[in-house]
Design a protein around this nucleic acid. Structure first.
Length: 528
DNA sequence: GTAGGGTTAG
């Protein structure tokens, strides 16, 4: 717990006010002056807290912080409600949040469940899940709201098993659960693809009659993620009217994820008013079914409605144009994004890479690195995979090597199995079998990274360079790793066939049929 | 003070 650090910060600054002012954007100084002019301070904390809360509800963190700062400067007694509002305004500013935390400790408000829960949420939404967990562990008493806040934090950080374990502890503590608990739990089941557990929760909701639009929406999402389209639609229909936009968006996602494109576009025509969420999903559908015509029309709708400032929607636009083959439109959509996120950069790097424009992709990656300090956006594992893929498509071996071997030092990212697979594939295609083999052998010790994708890449490299001995080693690994996948047998059998090892091929074929493995039919679902 | 819907990843 970094409590001591938070305290240190507040002690160091002789007054809390100047250190807070550092976080106020310069354009807000007029507001600051305005607040300073308020001479008639109503010293009743409850009335001021009400104003704080209204700023928070209006989604104006700057106003919340400014008022909080003024309250502190004027000696208004800060209570757990003041802190909870201030903390919720710090959700993306952990440094500021720690200052407020320090002040909270000094004011003796840290043990109140209200402010402690707000603290937990602040740390969690700033990405500091360990601190959030510590806050929870140190709470003297935990009500259902605190447990729910912990559960949703764990789920949003992908700590799914921890969330399920926390739910068990919650039950053990005799705390009764609420709709929020079920939503978080179901999200965990959805991400874990645990259909059984999800269905148990569903049965429980039906039996106790605790169905609501919120829980129903989570169920639609859950069944959609588990590819249970019929169940998702049944939940949707069972909810009756009125439906709100969130559940319509969830239904839209059911159609997109399960490639029901006609239904996607039918919904798009029917539902009014349209919102950013729905248009983002619709663009994702256009990317999947390569429908540039519809994509362009949706772009027009976006501009007409003034939605072109929504960051995620713009990323979807870049992706749609790229997937549908219009690289120029992808680039101009990217250029118009005001605050480019790691997803925006990854999308455009991937766009150039998949169009065979590796050098431009690298140039953009360089630009991203150069802007890192000013934009505060760093590449992630997906970005680096896009860079490697771009090199692979354009045969940029040297550049790929530089990128791959500097991942850890320059970006603090450990290459995952997908990076290894891509890199080995690239080396293999360039005929650099020994180098690929070196990378592959380095992986043999770490079983979590030696995936079938890595073996497939290595086997292809062996085939490309006609190296039977190495290939046999890899084939053995591959068939051990993923015994039930018929395509692996076919791959190995094609590899052996390339060397005329027909008796071994025949043996494999016999094994495929004796084990009842059948290759799934390929499908190409075109746009409707 | 907690809860439902969106983008990228050969």
């Amino acid at each position: 717990m970094k409590v001591s650090w938070a305290l240190y910060l507040t002690r160091r600054s002789s007054s809390f006010v100047p250190s807070l002012a550092l976080f106020v954007p310069s354009q807000c100084f007029s507001t600051l002056a305005f607040v300073a002019q308020m001479t008639h301070w109503d010293r009743d904390p409850s009335r001021l807290n009400a104003i704080l809360t209204s700023h928070t509800r209006a989604g104006d963190p700057t106003a919340t912080i400014l008022l909080f700062q003024q309250m502190h400067a004027h000696g208004v007694r800060l209570d757990s409600y003041s802190f909870s509002s201030a903390l919720s305004a710090c959700s993306n500013a952990p440094a500021l949040g720690r200052l407020v935390h320090g002040l909270m400790l000094k004011a003796g408000c840290s043990s109140s469940p209200i402010s402690a829960t707000a603290l937990l949420v602040m740390y969690s939404s700033s990405g500091c899940i360990r601190d959030a967990r510590s806050v929870f562990d140190e709470m003297p008493a935990r009500d259902s709201v605190a447990w729910n806040a912990l559960l949703s934090s764990l789920v949003s950080h992908g700590l799914l098993a921890d969330a399920v374990a926390a739910f068990r502890l919650m039950m053990g503590d005799g705390v009764s659960f609420t709709g929020s608990t079920l939503c978080s739990l179901l999200k965990a089941c959805s991400a874990l693809r645990d259909i059984r557990k999800g269905k148990q929760i569903h049965a429980w909701v039906i039996v106790t009659g605790s169905q609501s639009l919120e829980i129903g929406t989570t169920f639609v999402d859950f069944y959609s993620n588990c590819a249970e389209v019929a169940a998702a639609i049944e939940v949707f229909s069972s909810l009756g009217k009125p439906k709100d936009c969130a559940i319509l968006n969830a239904l839209m996602n059911v159609c997109v994820q399960n490639r029901l494109f006609k239904e996607v576009f039918a919904l798009l025509v029917k539902v009014r008013p349209l919102n950013c969420f729905m248009l983002t999903s619709a663009l994702s559908a256009c990317s999947k079914c390569l429908n540039l015509l519809y994509g362009r029309q949706i772009h027009c709708v976006i501009v007409r409605n003034g939605f072109n400032f929504d960051a995620i929607l713009c990323n979807a636009l870049v992706n749609m144009y790229s997937k549908c083959g219009d690289l120029r439109a992808a680039h101009s959509s990217f250029a118009l994004i005001e605050r480019k996120s790691v997803v925006s950069w990854t999308s455009i790097i991937d766009a150039y890479g998949s169009h065979g424009r590796g050098c431009e992709a690298l140039r953009l990656f360089k630009m991203m690195e150069e802007e890192k300090n000013s934009s505060n956006v760093s590449p992630n594992a997906a970005t680096l995979l896009s860079v490697l893929t771009a090199c692979s498509h354009s045969g940029l071996v040297q550049e790929a090597k530089e990128c791959f071997f500097s991942m850890k030092d320059r970006h603090d990212i450990d290459p995952g199995s997908e990076h290894y697979a891509c890199f080995i594939d690239l080396l293999g295609r360039a005929g650099k079998l020994e180098e690929a083999w070196g990378v592959f052998c380095g992986l043999e010790a770490s079983c979590d990274k030696l995936t079938s994708a890595v073996c497939v890449a290595m086997l292809n490299a062996c085939k490309f360079s006609m190296d039977l001995l190495k290939g046999e080693v890899v084939a053995k690994h591959l068939l051990e790793l993923d015994m039930d996948n018929p395509s692996n047998y076919i791959l190995v059998s094609n590899f052996l066939g390339a060397f005329g090892r027909w008796e071994a091929v025949e043996e494999l074929r016999k094994e495929i049929s004796s084990r009842g493995l059948r290759k799934e039919l390929g499908s190409s679902q075109a746009a409707s």
